[in-house]
Each structure stands twice: as C-alpha cells, then as structure tokens.
Design a protein around this nucleic acid. Sequence first.
RNA 1: UCCCCCAUAGCUCAAUUGGCAGAGCGAGCGGCUGUUAACCGCUAGGUUGUUGGUUCGAGUCCAACUGGGGGAGCCA
Length: 490
Amino acid sequence: MIRSAQRELSTVSGKGPGRTMHEQSRTLIVDALAAPIGTKHRIQGWIRTRRDSKAGLSFLNVNDGSCFDNLQVVAPGELSNYEDTVLRLTTGCSVTVEGELVASQGAGQTIELRADTIELVGDVEDPDTYPVSAKRHSFEYLRSVAHLRSRTNTFGAVARVRHCLSYAVHDFLHRRRFLYIHTPIITASDCEGAGEMFRVSTLDLLNRENATEGQPAPADYADDFFGREAYLTVSGQLSVESYCCSLSNVYTFGPTFRAENSNTSRHLAEFWMIEPEIAFGDLADDATLVTAFLKHLIRTVLEERADDMKFFDLRIKKGLIDSLHKVVEADFARVSYTDAIAELEKAKKKFEFPVKWGIDLQSEHERFLTEELYQQPIIVIDYPKEIKAFYMRLNDDEKTVAAMDVMVPGIGEIVGGSQREERLDVLDRRIDEMGLPREPYWWYRDLRRYGTVPHAGFGLGFERMIQYVTGMANIRDVIPFPRTPRSADF
RNA sequence: UCCCCCAUAGCUCAAUUGGCAGAGCGAGCGGCUGUUAACCGCUAGGUUGUUGGUUCGAGUCCAACUGGGGGAGCCA
C-alpha cells in the first residue's frame, strides 16, 4: 500500500519511478530546519499561509507535521508556474518544493527555503468552506472536523506529545526489564469488576432467526460466537497478574472500554491504559515506581518536545512548564486516607459532601488536597476496604486495604493502584464479602494456590496523563477520534 | 444518569419590549509591502439546529426532539 501510494505521489510530482519511504529524496521539515545553509532539499507538506509581496515573490508557510515549526518557503516570481499556481495556493493545499536553504532576511525565522520549483500536489476544492481555515477555531468546532484538526498547531502538537509519551512509557519500562504483555481485548466473563462493559456478539439482535410474531426470542449465548457472553475489556490487570506471577515485572498498554454513561471532560468510552505489575513488591514499591514513572514521562516530554510544550505553555495553559518542572523535582507527598480525611475535616473550606472516615473521596476533596493543601501530585494510600475492589490486599488493621490513588492538580485522579491480595483464604473471604461468585475467578485464585507472591501494580489513564502534560482541558482533544456516549464519528 | 447553559454567514459572536438579518475573522477580487496575528478598499456569503404551538407578525415567547458545553456521579 505504501509503495503504491508513493508511486502515485511521485507520478503526480513528476519525479519518475516510485520510491519507498527510506529511499525517498524528501527531507522532513524538522530536518530541513536543522540543515546547513546552502544545502538543497525537497520538502513536502501542507500550506499553512501564503503572503504575497508585489516585489514579485510570495512567502509560503509549509508544515508537514514533523515538528511544530513551519518552514518558510520563498517563491520567486520568476518561477514558471508563479502566476497560475503559486498565486493560487491556499491554506490546506499540499505541495512539493525543491530549493536551497538560505539565511532569512525577515524576522520570524533564521532560515528559509528559496524555491527552485513548487508543485501543487493536492488543491483545496473551495477555500471559502475549507474547514480549518487560517483563523482561530474553537476546540468544540474542531471536534466536528476531527479528520482535519491534526492540521492545526494544537492538534499537531498533541499528536507529537502523545507519541513521545507513548514511546517514553515503553522506554522506561523496557529499561527496567518489564515485559510488554498483550492482554486480550475481548474478555469472556464479567469478572473484571470495573464498571459497565460493552457486549461483544455476532447475534443479530434486531432480526432473530427464531423470532415469531414480532416477539424476540430470549438471548441464548450458547449460540453466540464464543458460546458464552463476551465483552470488551475494562482492564488488563487480572490477566497481566498471571504473567506477573511468572515473568516478574510486566505491563500492559492498550485500549480499554467502559460503557459508563459518563459525560465529563475526563472520561472516554474508549481510552488507553498503562498497567504495570511488579512481583515480590508491596504498596511502597508500587508508589515508588509510579513516582519515578510519572517523573520520567514528564521529563522526557519536556526535553524531546520542547517546541510543542512551549506552545502549550504560551497558548493553552500559562505556567505549565514551570509547574511540570516542579513536579519533576519535588517528591510526591504520600498521605494515608485516614490522615487525608483528618486534613479535610480540619480544613476551613465548606464541602458539598460532608467528610467522614469511610466515605469515598469526592472530586472536590481530591481537588482541595492536590490543588490547595499540597499543591503538587499526591499519593493517597490505605483506603477503607468497603470502597475498594476485592483484589486489593487487606491491611493488618483489617479495616483498610493497600490501595493507592495518585491525584494531580487540574485533573484529579490519574492513577489507581494497589498491592494485590496474595493470600487465598483472605481473597476468598473478600470475594464472599462483596457478594461475588468464586467460580469465574478460578484461574485468578489458582495464582494464589501455586507459588503465590506478594505483588502490586497500578493503572495510568494515558489520556489523562496527556491532559496533565499538555494542559488540554478536555480529554476528547488528546485522542485522535474520541468515543463518548452518543458520539463515535469518524 | 442528574443539574445548569447554549444552538444565527465557512468560523467566533451581535440583533433594544415580539417589528426590514449585522459585525469581526476567514474567503474572492484589487491596492500596498522581504512578508510572517500584516495593512487599506471592494464583493460574495443566511430556510436563524429540527418539528410543532402562541401571535397581525417569532432569531426573540412556549413544548418536544436532536446536537454541543460546564458541573456532578461512576472511574483511569
């Protein structure tokens, strides 16, 4: 596919036989901007703006997504197609430009490409209705043209930061000898216990073969594809625990699906989650890992995407870079749930939800703790067992479990984790207490019957991390094509 | 799912008590200029989200629906 697409493109630009990517004579703009003056380049990208000078030349800002900055192309009036092509280029047109890098006479940039040839690859049908014209657009509007919004500064920057973070996740864990485990997307029973699930089925619910008189027949999952009910995963954790109990340090990084009817700026029906799991480790190890992990991600983005981060700092959230630097330097505060409740009770602030030991922390409580009291990311540990999942390890006080939530200013909860209950008798007791059936967990319980080990892990919401790092207010703007209730366009 | 708010030109928004549909940006054309948030002039651009209702008359008032935003819950 790529080969033929390249051939097509090469034909359009009249450059002879097709080339594969690595043979291509194309210079990406990120490389062109770093190349020495006097070198010749062939660049390809999309026009951001065109400015004409009646001194007989035009300026084209061209972007190809390889970095934040555009390359300024100077188009001399002597070009054979200056009148009929260059002067008709509009925002969004794709072009191939060959020329020489020269020192720029203007302000805004140090170098520019003086064009020898400019070829129009793809025209813009109607500049008046081009959806991402050269003006400010609201994020709400851009969501309705999600197929084109990556051509804007903001969404290009988000995509590059997203890639950088994604790469940094693998890099950090790989270097610490974690193995990347591909846990299943389809799960066969509702035993993951993390909320509403999407059903996976090949049954035609609207046209049952055995429907009679408009009366639908009852579902019989024995006839379904898997011969039983199946769902999209809400977490890879239980699966990855099994690999943890043999390969030691492991992680998942994949799509996750929640059918919750959540309509907020920090929920998606389809999102990506990173779930490391460490063997022979406890909650303290888990907290140490998550701290180093988050710091590494932030540090990497600040270094490798300085161009995009500068933009976010300037246009999206003032002071963003400073606050991220502080996070990298300061240690995260670790506070027990019990102490956090005490702090909230002491606080002069009036909360809508009254504070009392045993309650789940509400948004307003989390915000107060991380944004006002500590003013940095905090790790709250040891929650009451009643408000946490069955698999979390029961502490010696018999009242709390070894759970942790990491909350950050502006987002709230970004990580949820725990030490897992490795004692079969305690696990069984907890399953019973929560009114869950033991049977579906047979394999999970097996892990505790055969060479059980203390282990712990956490789940990091990848999009929330991107939000935190970029300052983007809405989670729908940090994933290419967001899926939310009543919305699955593109 | 609950509460509040919104829907008018390609986009962002105006429109007086219910009385002729407006501006800025973007776009097209022209002028000026090694330009870069350019600047100056002209032009085009509308079934006011959908359906129904009240009224002599509805962008404006009422109802339902659809879509969107903010907050809450659930969570990552």
